[in-house]
Structures are given as structure tokens and as C-alpha cells.
């Protein structure tokens, strides 16, 4: 059943420009570095930081923040597809369980975000190769910095999906999202327990994997809270 529902979800994404956004996110992140390296190449050379490691760090500085924005936009898009003419009432009167509807929305979003993260890894690699650094390509780091933030951002994904499916007025989920974006932007100044900090992979123990574990654990927790609320609600 989930398989069929996923096919249906992807059908609904047609002509919505969502695939363009999935491309634009990672492309935007890398193109910021294109500008950065275009303008300041000499400076990097002068500082002795014109190398792969420093480049990967530069890319990853923007990733968390772009990721949170992407989550906010994509979840709101997914919810607005059903909210626009209230297709919830049509869909939920079909012989499917509500949890499978919620799960298929979540899975679709996760799939889109995995595509975006993969594109990010590819774009970072390609532009890095173009920059022609002297040291070896740190494949593992590139993959790590492309996917760790996604796992660490699962609580935010769960939260945004929850509020954008249960609140009709998309202004509110987007506002909550913007606050999250601001917090993600200030990641290094906010306390470790705030979920918006986690995608930055920064914590007081300097152990990025911790954020990934927290993200998975709390992400699953928030997912269930949202799903249970979604199941219990009356459909207007």
C-alpha cells in the first residue's frame, strides 16, 4: 500500500516546480562558493587555505541553513497540494489508513531531500575538481558533510510536516520555519539542545556523529507525535 501511495504522491508533484527547487538548493549552496572562490581565490592562496579540506568546510558552512530552508519550503508545498481544495477529505475517505498517508508524505519528502543531498555531494565534488586543489579528494568528508546534516535535521522535518499538515494557514508553519532558519544561521551561538542547531554538526564535544544520533532518535519521536496527532484529528 505504501508503494502505491508513494507513486501517487510523486504524481501529485508534477508541474509544481518541486524538482527545480530540489536542484536549486544544492546548486545555490555550491554557487555561493563559486562566487566566494571567484572573488577571493588570491586570498585563500595567500592564507595557505586553498585546499580541499578548507573548501569542504566552506561548503558545509551554508549547508545546514539551506537544508532547513529546503525543508520548510518542501513541506509547505506538500501540504498546500492537499490544502488548496481540501483534498484531505477525499483522500482520507479512501480505503487507506491515515498512518500510511502520513508516512508516504514523510517518505516522499525524505526522498526529495536525499536527492538534494546527493546533488550537493556531486556539485561540491565537481566544482572542487574544477578548482584544481593540490591535495587528494576527501570523498568521505564530502559525503559526510552532505548527508550528516540531513539526518541531524530529521526533527525539523518532522516538526514542519506536522504543523503544515494540521494547520490550514501555511503562513504559520512558514513563520515557524523562518524562526528555525534564523536559529540555524546562528547555530554556533545557540544551546546544544535546540534541534535547529543539530544540522550544523556542532556540539560542545566536537563529535558530529552525536548530532546524527540525536537527529535520528528525536526525529523518529517527533515523527510519531505528528503522525498520532494527524490520525486523531477530525478532517474538516
Amino acid at each position: 500500500m505504501i508503494g502505491k501511495l508513494l507513486q501517487v504522491e510523486f504524481m501529485k508533484l508534477k508541474r509544481k516546480g518541486i524538482w527545480f527547487l530540489v536542484f536549486l538548493g544544492p546548486f545555490g549552496v555550491v554557487s555561493l562558493q563559486m562566487v566566494n572562490y571567484g572573488v577571493r581565490k588570491e586570498w585563500f592562496l595567500h592564507q595557505g587555505t586553498y585546499n580541499w579540506d578548507y573548501y569542504v568546510l566552506n561548503v558545509s558552512a551554508i549547508t545546514p541553513f539551506a537544508l532547513i530552508l529546503g525543508i520548510v519550503i518542501l513541506t509547505s508545498f506538500m501540504a498546500s497540494i492537499e490544502n488548496e481544495t481540501n483534498t484531505w477529505k477525499q483522500m482520507l475517505a479512501l480505503p487507506i489508513t491515515r498512518w500510511s498517508v502520513y508516512l508516504s508524505k514523510y517518505t516522499t519528502l525524505l526522498f526529495l531531500l536525499i536527492i538534494a543531498s546527493s546533488l550537493l555531494a556531486i556539485f561540491s565534488l565537481l566544482f572542487g575538481i574544477y578548482l584544481d586543489f593540490q591535495n587528494d579528494i576527501p570523498y568521505v568528508d564530502i559525503i559526510r558533510y552532505s548527508f550528516y546534516p540531513l539526518f541531524a535535521a530529521l526533527p525539523v522535518l518532522g516538526l514542519q510536516l506536522w504543523i503544515s499538515t494540521v494547520i490550514q494557514n501555511q503562513g504559520l508553519p512558514i513563520t515557524v520555519g523562518v524562526i528555525g532558519v534564523i536559529l540555524a544561521y546562528m547555530a554556533y551561538f545557540i544551546p546544544d539542545w535546540l534541534i535547529w542547531k543539530w544540522p550544523s554538526l556542532d556540539n560542545q564535544w566536537n563529535e558530529p556523529l552525536l548530532n546524527v544520533y540525536w537527529g535520528l532518535a528525536v526525529g523518529i519521536g517527533i515523527y510519531f507525535v505528528g503522525m498520532i496527532d494527524f490520525i486523531r484529528r477530525d478532517v474538516k
Binding site: L21, L69, V72, S76, F77, S80, E84, I174
Partner: peptide, 10 residues
Amino acid sequence: SFAASFSVNV
């Protein structure tokens, strides 16, 4: 859609 105008904004 909110999401569409918000995307342009972002």
C-alpha cells in the same frame, strides 16, 4: 500557494 511566493523570496 504560500510556498511558491516564499521560494521566490528565499
